[in-house]
Design a protein around this nucleic acid. Structure first.
Lengths: 108, 108
DNA sequence: TCCGTAGTTCAAGACTTTCGAACTATTGAA
DNA sequence: TTCAATAGTTCGAAAGTCTTGAACTACGGA
């Protein structure tokens, strides 16, 4: 809990890492929840219920290191938010089209 | 070589599988090569040179099962082509924006 | 029929994912 | 200020995936 979070600069974000992070159904779900909420959200809120905390922690780490989210400590919790605007500048339309496409196929 | 190729119907293609397939640098490279060529291409042509054949075969299988490419046997070779139009109907803009974004970041 | 080319399959080692258990940091209450 | 609850991290083990060499199959041409 003392180790500070590391966020890559937007220009160091690799497209492959972004796709990799979003390729996992759990992580895509987390990103969708954050996108829908439109504001920062702690890990437990943004993650699907019943996801073990260690798994949750792992997924947030992947999302953070891929450059998709920004995490900040607020007391005992971690507030996560999407880096949408930054990413859209670097990879125009990519995140938006994926989020849009994922809405249509969410029920399965 | 006798086993026929299995291609998912476009409506059975999962967004996660597409993202997963494109998240690998080698596979993204293959897809970019196919997109640039604008026509069917055998495996050795489309894959980066010096990629071991077994690895190559594995990547084409992943791309095929993810619904990204269509493969057909032509004598001793396999002709692969992107399923762009179909996929764009199902996931509008996703493949196009990824291919576009990947052009800017290809040199690394 | 035999050879070369194109690709597949198999197996093994390396790497990743998931999740329980143990841990740490912060907050709020006694 | 001490204690417990909350929120998340770290570690380790089991299960799964990736990469690649070696052996294989299939087609086409000489």
């Amino acid at each position: 809990m003392q180790r500070p979070f590391v966020h890559p600069a937007v220009e160091d974000v690799a497209l492959e890492s972004v796709l990799y992070a979003l390729a996992d159904p759990t992580r895509l779900e987390i990103v969708k929840t954050l996108a829908a909420g439109n504001c920062g959200m702690n890990c437990s809120m943004a993650a699907p219920p019943d996801l073990p905390k260690s798994t949750q922690s792992h997924h947030f780490q992947v999302l953070r290191e891929a450059g998709l989210i920004r995490s900040e400590r607020r007391g005992t919790e971690v507030v996560n938010s999407l880096r949408c605007a930054e990413l859209d500048k670097r990879f125009p339309g990519v995140i938006a089209s994926i989020l849009k496409a994922s809405e249509k196929t969410k029920k399965r």
